[in-house]
Amino acid sequence: MSWIRGRIPTVVLACALALTGCSGGSGGDSQGSLPQGPQTLQQASNSMRDLKSVAFTISTEGDPVSFPVKSGEVRLLRNGDAEGRLHVQVGMSMETEFVLLGDVLYYKGLTGGYEKASKEQLRSLYDPSAVLDPERGIAKLLTAARGAQPEAREKVGGKDAYRVKVTLPKQEIEGLIPGVDEDLQGQVWISADDHRLLKVRGELPPSGGKGAVVITFTEFNADYRFKAPI
């Protein structure tokens, strides 16, 4: 099971941050009636800065071979604790469920039962607590994004949102998404009501296989309580 401890735990944690990816949609208002891009991103950063928890889904477009998570659902607390389900491709396709509590990661191996790995072993590769850290995670990424251009007003999960085209700088995403070694082009969707980040889409570099990673945020500040499965 050494390959699982070397790859699956990293994939599990990487998705909890991946905080970069989402899908587009049909156009809405003209650019003339949309708010300014930089102002919208700043409002979103402020709105995401004090979150205590978040839930999100992951999906991919095309065949981004450099990103082994094909789909998943994750619930995350500000301290880094998390639980969820992932469909991963690491030489073979498999579904895995996981719970991360403190320094211990519980994950379902090939036998179907839960196994354990140490978060400390993975800290140099990825730290899930960075996702909701205002100085390292989502809030920081939103203010660091360059070239913000408002594109449309659309619905995301039934909510009105502004779609903004952005460049996501390597420096702000490399600690959150392992394997990304250059800026990413993409879009972010910001709620028109409370300015929260609802969706992100990041196009992966051609060297990693043509495609994009999509992340859709579904819950904010829910009272999650995770328990060890074994």
Rank of each mutant, 00 (worst) to 15 (best):
K165V: 03
G211I: 06
A18V: 09
G211S: 09
A161N: 06
Q36G: 14
D194W: 05
V156D: 02
K108M: 11
V54S: 02
R78I: 00
A148P: 12
C22W: 10
K159C: 01
D160H: 08
T218H: 03
A18F: 09
S59D: 15
A192C: 07
Q43S: 11
L184G: 10
V11S: 14
S30R: 11
G109L: 03
K108A: 04
D194L: 05
D81V: 00
F226H: 01
G80H: 00
F217K: 00
K170T: 06
E83S: 11
V69G: 13
L13F: 11
E182M: 14
G25N: 11
G72I: 04
T10F: 09
I215M: 12
S2G: 13
S59Q: 12
H87P: 02
H195L: 02
R7L: 15
S30Y: 09
P169N: 07
S53N: 07
E219D: 15
V104E: 11
W3T: 15
A152S: 15
K165L: 10
P38A: 10
R163F: 06
L142F: 05
D194S: 08
S66A: 15
K108R: 14
R49C: 00
G147C: 04
D193C: 03
G137K: 00
Y114W: 09
G147H: 12
S53M: 07
Q149I: 13
T10P: 02
F217T: 01
F98P: 04
D194E: 12
R123K: 14
P205F: 07
Y162H: 11
P35K: 02
D193H: 10
Q187F: 14
P178V: 06
V11R: 04
N221Q: 02
S71I: 04
R163Y: 06
E120P: 01
K165D: 12
G157V: 06
Q89C: 08
E182L: 02
G91F: 11
P206Q: 09
G80Q: 02
L77A: 00
